[in-house]
Amino acid sequence: MNFISRYRRSKFFGPALLAAALFVLGTSYSVASATTFKAVTPSNDKTTLIAEGKEIFARGCSSCHGLNLEGGAIAPSLIGVGAASVDFQVGTGRMPMADMSVQAARKDPIYNEAETAALAAYVASLAPGPAAIRNEDLAWERSGDAAEGGQLFRSNCSMCHNFAGQGGALSQGKYAPSLMGVEAKHIYEALITGPQSMPVFSDKIITPAEKLSIIKWIKAAESEPNLGGASLGRTGPVTEGLLSWSLGIMALIGVAVWITAKAK
C-alpha cells in the first residue's frame, strides 16, 4: 500500500479519484444496460409487423406456398392455418424445409423470434386461425397435473410418440418426432394445429387445462433422471436384447475362454 500512501496527499489525487470513480460507474452502467440496446427490433405496430412479415414471406416462403399463401404442387395452402401454426413450423425450424423428404424435420430455426412473429402476424392477417401461444401464458408448472397428463398422454400420444415421448415410426418413412427438448408453447401449438401427420386435438377433445397437464407430464419425463441406470434410449426391449447379445454374452464368453485357457 506504499503506492497509495505516497500519493494520497498529492493535489491531483482528488480529481483523479473522481475521474476513476466516474469511469467505473459509467462502464458498469453501460455493460449492465447493454441488453436494452438491441439491434433493430421490429416495430410493435401491427401494420409494420404485417408488412415485415409479408416481405419475409415473399423472400423465404412464397416459392413453395405461393405469393398469396394459396399453396402449390409441393406445399399446402396457408390460408386459415393461423399464427399458431406458423409459430410452430418456423419456430421449431421445420419451415423452411431443408429438403423435400417425406417429412419436415426439426432443426435450428432459420428465422429469429422477431421474424417468426412477423411471419405469423402476416399469415394470420389474411385469414383467421388459432393464435400463437407464448410460453409465459402456459402455466403448466403451476396448474398442470402430471399423473393426469400421463394418462392422457398414454391414451392419445404414446401410440405414435412412444411411452416416454422418444418418438416412433409411422408408415412410408414418416415418423412421430421425439418430444424431448421441445418448448411448451410448441407442444401446445402442435396440439391445436395438428402439423404434418399429427391429428388436431381441439379444446373439446382435450381441454386447455388437460393440455397443460400433458405438457407437465412430458416435461417431467424429460427431466426425470434415469432411475434404473443407463436408459438405453427408453425405447423398449430392443436395445435391452441388443445389450444382452453384445456386452452381456460376449463378456461371459470372454470369461469362459479365460477360465478354460491352458496354463502356460
Binding site: 394418462q151 404414446s158 412412444n162 411411452f163 416412433g168 412421430a176 436384447g241
Partner: peptide
C-alpha cells in the same frame, strides 16, 4: 410405461428378444 388399460398402446411395443 404406466398402468395397463386395453384402450392404450405405445409406439415401440416389443417383446423381449
Amino acid at each position: 410405461f404406466g398402468p395397463y388399460t386395453p384402450a392404450q398402446i405405445t409406439a415401440g411395443s416389443q417383446p423381449d428378444w
